[in-house]
């Protein structure tokens, strides 16, 4: 039982981080950002590039910082350029696809397609913690994700910056009118999103290792969390919970390689019956 809880928390950890990474551009910047898959990969590869020179901790900090800056620059230099266009959704999607190609293939060019791993602790059997067997790195992952959720919730729901982010997500024209710097808020959102993606990637890189195309599946999971749970911080956590339960239960009957299919079916069901997700934030429809 405790093991099931532990496994659930472990899956949730990854889903929640990529969920946040997808949530921020989706709500605040009103666009689908698939280059998140590229940022998920960029994080860990930057770690192994820089860690030999400045140590693991230094590498992690550099990687997260650099990815955050990359997200910031992309929003400022590319996405802002098309933000006033009629076809903004499509243009933004295409730009993110282009960036995804550049990021993934850039990494592949430099590192090749073999699987790397971020070396943390030596591989050893996990310890018993509260009745569940978890390795040190898995404990770290769960810990990091819990802290992230708490920090995210505090920042986005309680603090003023969070209120501004949500305001821009709901009605950016009104925000312009009351003097909020919509462009700046969007840059902030994109940067934080990229940062979360990098963290997610680094965690994955410590756990199962990394390849250049590692970002797609986590992105799909994160995206599903946002749809299933609703476009709020707690919504993503809720969606992550549902998805990991589904995965845990699913494993009993369905082989692990079909887990993606399960996730996608859940996604479709929610799109049909409850597109606003559990926490019910309004969904853009084709209407006035």
């Amino acid at each position: 039982m405790a093991q099931i809880i532990a496994n659930t928390l472990l899956y949730m950890a990854f889903y929640v981080m990529t969920g946040f990474a997808f949530l921020l551009p989706f709500t605040v910047c009103r666009r689908i950002d698939l280059s998140i898959a590229g940022f998920i990969a960029l994080g860990p590869y930057l770690v192994i590039t820089t860690a030999p020179f400045i140590g693991l901790a230094g590498g992690v900090i550099t990687a997260i910082a650099s990815t955050t800056v990359a997200g910031c620059l992309l929003q400022k230099l590319l996405f802002e350029k098309v933000s006033k266009r009629e076809d903004f959704s499509q243009a933004a999607l295409l730009i993110s696809l282009g960036m995804l190609f550049i990021l993934q293939n850039g990494i592949s060019l430099v590192f090749g397609d073999d699987r790397y791993r971020i070396e943390t602790w030596p591989i050893e059997p996990g310890q018993m913690v509260l009745g569940a067997r978890l390795s040190k790195i898995q404990l770290l992952i769960i810990g990091v994700s819990i802290i992230s959720v708490i920090i995210a919730w505090y920042l986005f729901e309680i603090r003023k910056v969070g209120k501004m982010l949500r305001a821009v997500a709901i009605d950016s024209d009104l925000c312009h009118a009351v003097g909020i710097d919509v462009g700046g808020i969007r840059i902030l959102a994109a940067s934080i999103g990229a940062g979360f993606a990098a963290v997610a990637g680094i965690l994955i890189g410590c756990d199962t290792g990394m390849v250049p195309s590692m970002g797609f599946n986590p992105l799909l999971m994160g995206l599903t969390c946002v749809i299933v749970g609703g476009s709020r911080i707690l919504g993503v956590a809720c969606g992550a919970f549902v998805l990991s339960i589904a995965r845990n239960i699913g494993i009993v009957w369905i082989a692990s390689q079909w887990q993606d299919a399960v996730a996608f079916t859940v996604l479709l069901i929610f799109l049909i019956f409850r597109p606003q997700g559990f926490l019910g934030t309004p969904v853009r429809k084709v209407s006035l």
Partner: peptide
């Protein structure tokens, strides 16, 4: 599932379907 919603949801669903 998605055509009555904003076209972003159609794109999302096709992404999932592809995967």
């Amino acid at each position: 599932a998605t055509l009555r919603l904003h076209e972003d949801y159609f794109a999302i669903a096709t992404f999932g379907f592809q995967m």
